[in-house]
Design a protein around this nucleic acid. Sequence first.
DNA 1: GTCATATTTGGCTAAATTGCCAAGCAGCAC
DNA 2: GTGCTGCTTGGCAATTTAGCCAAATATGAC
Lengths: 111, 111
Amino acid sequence: MKEHMDEKTQARYQARAQIVKAMAHPTRLFIVDELSNHGERCVCELTEMIGTDMSTVSRHLSVLKEAGLVQDDKRSQMVYYRLRVNCILKFFACITSVIADNAERQEKLLL
Amino acid sequence: MKEHMDEKTQARYQARAQIVKAMAHPTRLFIVDELSNHGERCVCELTEMIGTDMSTVSRHLSVLKEAGLVQDDKRSQMVYYRLRVNCILKFFACITSVIADNAERQEKLLL
DNA sequence: GTCATATTTGGCTAAATTGCCAAGCAGCAC
DNA sequence: GTGCTGCTTGGCAATTTAGCCAAATATGAC
């Protein structure tokens, strides 16, 4: 990416990639899914569900927050996270269709 | 992710993450966008547009292919790639809305 | 004030990703 | 066959990411 794509175009795809990257992890996808279903969760609840270190979950949440996908809300000791965007569900629908398509293709190859 | 989420759930998010990961790169997002607009492109065309090493582009394409997002078609010396899925456009719409939202928020903070 | 809980952050190591070059392979022209 | 073009793959170094522990911070209960 050094000469043919101008800087603006580069920057645009860079910005897009940052958003996609923020979701490119199983734990973060789970969090996004859970928040889209339940609306709001504190770090401790998510940690409990995921079953890993709280520090790790917190780091994942900060990645999502940095990308502008979630926002946090501190109430007493707990920090509650929720989605900032509502189009994320379409992501899952699309991803699921890709997975289904891959599975179907896989099956055909086995016949 | 060791005890609270069962293996099936884990595997499901793992599979989803693999798909998202495949798009989590500026160059690969560009390729996906270009293919969704133009339908079909050979490696050399994409290399020309991106302006990087052909081996690098080829690697990116293999990542997309591995995830089931594109398929290739060899005709004479050239290999043409095209999208396997058509819901990808919704991705961009959603991502763009996140970026717009982030920018707006950024602006508010500066006031 | 002390103590406990909820969360974030620093530091570190292990693993994955990226990009380049060189080498290999396939198809076409001759 | 040789040579050329388009593409892929091996290998390697540099960067990024992930996950854990320990330490720091904040809030509430007492």
